[in-house]
């Protein structure tokens, strides 16, 4: 048997909600899976598909994009645009047979430290179950 697989997950968290939610999870000592590397972005709409794709092609086993709940974006509409772009990328990865389940979009507010932990832990479990991302190991990519 090989060593137990520990996934490498990238999380793009918006500054105003999800990052604050992560902070709260930390300060209230909620258990959060350590396989998530957090990258703080000002808004979920900052997450261009390039960032998600680069992550997947260059080493991530999963990518989480998290922002404020619909209606609560600090910039009012950013997350609605983010959702459209994410939906497009998800559809493209589906059509191209590139494991769409490795990317996830979630809404987490500043007060949802517990929800943050639950979402991250569940995603980490899902990705662990899926195993290593073939894209990052593929010499064709």
């Amino acid at each position: 048997m090989e060593k137990k697989f520990k996934p490498n997950i990238v999380g793009f968290l918006c500054n105003w909600c999800s990052y604050a939610g992560a902070d709260l999870a930390g300060s209230s000592k909620t258990q959060v899976d350590p396989s998530l590397s957090v990258i703080r972005v000002m808004c979920s709409s900052r997450v261009n598909s390039n960032l998600i794709l680069s992550s997947l092609l260059w080493g991530a086993d999963g990518v989480l994009v998290a922002g404020c709940h619909p209606g609560d974006c600090h910039y009012e509409q950013g997350n609605y645009y983010a959702r459209r772009r994410f939906a497009l990328l998800k559809k493209i990865t589906k059509i191209l047979n590139l494991e769409p389940d490795r990317i996830q979009l979630s809404w987490i507010s500043a007060s949802e430290g517990k929800r943050y932990a639950e979402i991250v832990n569940q995603f980490a479990r899902d990705i662990t179950k899926k195993g290593p991302n073939p894209l990052t190991r593929n010499s064709q990519t």
């Binding site: 598909s49 390039n50 794709l53 680069s54 092609l57 260059w58 080493g59 772009r85 497009l88 990328l89 493209i92 191209l96 590139l98 990052t136 190991r137 593929n138 010499s139 064709q140 990519t141």
Partner: peptide
């Protein structure tokens, strides 16, 4: 590091990123 991870690294770099990325920008 990538070459190690992948076993071999293909050049030119970022070919697939370019195609899937371009697609995600303009395919609609």
């Amino acid at each position: 590091q990538k070459a190690e991870q992948k076993g071999a690294l293909r050049f030119p770099l970022n070919t697939m990123l370019f195609h899937i990325g371009r697609m995600s920008h303009m395919v609609l």
